[in-house]
Design a protein around this nucleic acid. Sequence first.
DNA 1: TGTGTTTTTAAGTAATTTTTAAGAAAAAAA
DNA 2: TTTTTTTCTTAAAAATTACTTAAAAACACA
Lengths: 232, 232
Amino acid sequence: MGSKKILLVEDDPNFGVVLKDYLALNDYNVTHAKDGIEGLIMFKNNDFDLCILDVMMPRKDGFSLAQDIRGTNKEIPIIFLTAKTMKEDVLKGYQVGADDYLNKPFDSEVLLLKIKAILQRKETESAQDSEQFEFAIGNFSFNSKLRHLSIRNEEPQKLSPKESKLLRMLALYKNDLMPRELALTKIWRDDNYFTSRSMDVYIAKLRKYLKADEGVEILNIHGEGFRLVDKS
Amino acid sequence: MGSKKILLVEDDPNFGVVLKDYLALNDYNVTHAKDGIEGLIMFKNNDFDLCILDVMMPRKDGFSLAQDIRGTNKEIPIIFLTAKTMKEDVLKGYQVGADDYLNKPFDSEVLLLKIKAILQRKETESAQDSEQFEFAIGNFSFNSKLRHLSIRNEEPQKLSPKESKLLRMLALYKNDLMPRELALTKIWRDDNYFTSRSMDVYIAKLRKYLKADEGVEILNIHGEGFRLVDKS
DNA sequence: TGTGTTTTTAAGTAATTTTTAAGAAAAAAA
DNA sequence: TTTTTTTCTTAAAAATTACTTAAAAACACA
């Protein structure tokens, strides 16, 4: 499947180089940035599978960098390297959405295992998502393969292909923002004025179907996208 | 087709009973074991279709039980119930061959959907490239080798080779989507405009034959394929 | 070779799905 | 506030896909 790309941000030059070589030796494609600022630039110019961030760094610390990274990518796994057992660090790390953390000095074997575990988990998770076709949305159950939106024992509402794809994408992001651009590029294969208008029409159609349950609605987040909220 | 048998292994007595009743209410035949040891004994003395295992249990935890279960049956679907954020659990679960996992507390609707999806997947999977040639479709019995579609004691309707192959494929995917493309590539060996028109003609022929039973019909899923529904 | 069976092609119709359009409403920016 | 941008709603036009029937072509077999 091609070796995974890792962004390593570590200001200690000696340690950084050793760690990079060690990971490279284990078949990872590692890019090494020497501080947070450089790390952010590299992150934006590449497509990484995982980030390893030192917490204590000059110019921009690991947490601040993590926040910026999350700004562009909510999915990418992040591992923090913290000094000693800084409880606060750990806590703060999880708030930013750390997938794991390691106290320096750490066992390099353990780091390898954690990397492997996290990457594998992400893979099965995303595979899961890409195959899921049954959803619970309020009182509805929705089957995106049969394109049926059913409520209780009533006759299911049939959906058109695009209606179904769009609702599925909203359901995958249930209660969270589903970016407009994502649906347009994935479902309409193009993001322009007309496809965007077309999508609006489909949102209107879905809203009509979903009226049958008060606790379910599609909210617009101006300029960003839509949010399927399910209060149940 | 008779209700599916589920083995539920959960040590929390309150939660276990509630969950058992909920599943029973949804037409599953549930057996409830109170720990891993009891679960294994019950598993060996019965013939279940699916297992739902709590991970954290006294005497024998869910993973250990899963390993023992896999020792006797490599096919049976297993769903794990894990405590909230135990990411390691998830990973370990997949290593043992989990079909899915749910974090407690979970949405019971979601559990139902997952059970349904997993059981259905197993069914179609095993049906897939099977040598099966006898099918029950509503009041019909269909033998794809003899190309006979019979109802009651009446003289069987003889089918042409293509009619028989197509009906067999629909029957393998009974009540589920049979993708147009699949039939075209497997039966017609080519997927183009003309083979697609040809297939339409065959669908029309099959529909005529199947009219003899009201509870059976071939529905079109626009742009996707056909679904042989059997309400009986 | 002829005959019955099976399969493909054709053509017109029907149904479904998607896009486009245009005015009104709402939200954000100036 | 006024202006600009984005979203909502409805309806009609355009495009795609499916259905029906029948005739032509291909095939199988005596």
